[in-house]
């Protein structure tokens, strides 16, 4: 299951549309990094609204994505974590420390706009 990555202005938006296997997640990580470099994006939104759960591997991978993209000078925000998913995550001890989160795509864009304004 390939995750589509769209470019919108200075930002990239990756929208996960169904349950992902580990391989899919690793593929997403590689694809996002390549595209951030190629398109010189300043921000990335990963939309996980459609994900029905995030286990330890998914959380780790998301964290890695955020850190690696930060090394490339861009910000990432994770949007759309569902209430049930969030509750299961914290029970497992997965809190996505140092990862920015927002309610949905709109909020994610607002966050990134805000971020790039304070930087420049």
């Amino acid at each position: 299951m390939e995750v589509p990555i769209l470019k919108q202005g200075d930002f990239l938006i990756a929208t996960i549309q169904a349950a992902l296997t580990d391989a899919d997640l690793l593929h997403l990580r590689t694809a996002l990094l390549q595209q951030v470099v190629r398109s010189r994006s300043r921000g990335v939104i990963v939309d996980v609204t459609a994900l029905d759960l995030m286990d330890s591997f998914a959380s780790r991978t998301v964290q890695e994505i955020v850190h690696m993209i930060r090394l490339r000078g861009a910000e990432t925000v994770i949007v759309g974590i569902q209430p049930e998913v969030a509750f299961a995550m914290v029970q497992l001890g997965l809190t996505l420390e140092n990862v920015a989160t927002a309610l949905d795509l709109e909020e994610g864009l607002a966050y990134l706009n805000q971020k790039s304004k304070t930087i420049s």
Partner: peptide
């Protein structure tokens, strides 16, 4: 504490 963390994951 978990409630606070889960709320943050939602973006609040």
């Amino acid at each position: 504490v978990q409630t606070v963390e889960a709320s943050r994951l939602l973006g609040a």
